[in-house]
Design a protein around this nucleic acid. Structure first.
Length: 119
DNA sequence: TTTGTGACCTAGG
DNA sequence: CCCTAGGCCACAA
């Protein structure tokens, strides 16, 4: 067996991830890694990102998925960035400086010092 | 085959 | 806030 042990077939993984994304309630958000965990695929945030990128389902609420620190994953000013911000605001989510508040509480001492004011 | 890339993450400094 | 290090992995060169 030269192949590595792939616990979960790609097809199932994709299915679970999409389900996890669809399960995010309107007006709420989740990080890529968090979605992966909910899908039973811890550590596979990149797969989530890749799936959203290649997704073609218009009903999929991809805009509710952010980076773990609450920031939008697209480069600032890009089309995806604006699109996602707009969609989130339409659901009542507060997006400011490309980031959603309240996703991750400041953890490290360093982060507390460099909090919202210092930026 | 190896290397580089990317809508990423966590733990640290 | 800025960085580095290591993990993750499908995909294209």
């Amino acid at each position: 067996m030269r192949a590595k042990t792939k616990a979960i077939p790609a097809e199932d993984a994709a299915c679970r991830i999409l389900a996890a994304v669809r399960a995010i309630p309107k007006g709420q958000v989740a990080g890529y890694g968090e979605v992966a965990r909910r899908a039973g695929l811890p550590g596979r945030a990149r797969l989530v990102a890749r799936l959203l990128g290649s997704n073609d389902d218009v009903r999929l609420p991809w805009h509710r998925v952010l980076r773990s620190d609450g920031r939008i994953a697209f480069p600032e000013g890009s089309e995806g960035y604006r699109e996602q911000s707009a969609r989130l605001r339409e659901e009542g989510v507060v997006v400011e400086r490309g980031r959603v508040r309240g996703l991750r509480a400041t953890a490290s001492l360093d982060d507390q010092l460099w909090g919202p004011m210092a930026g």
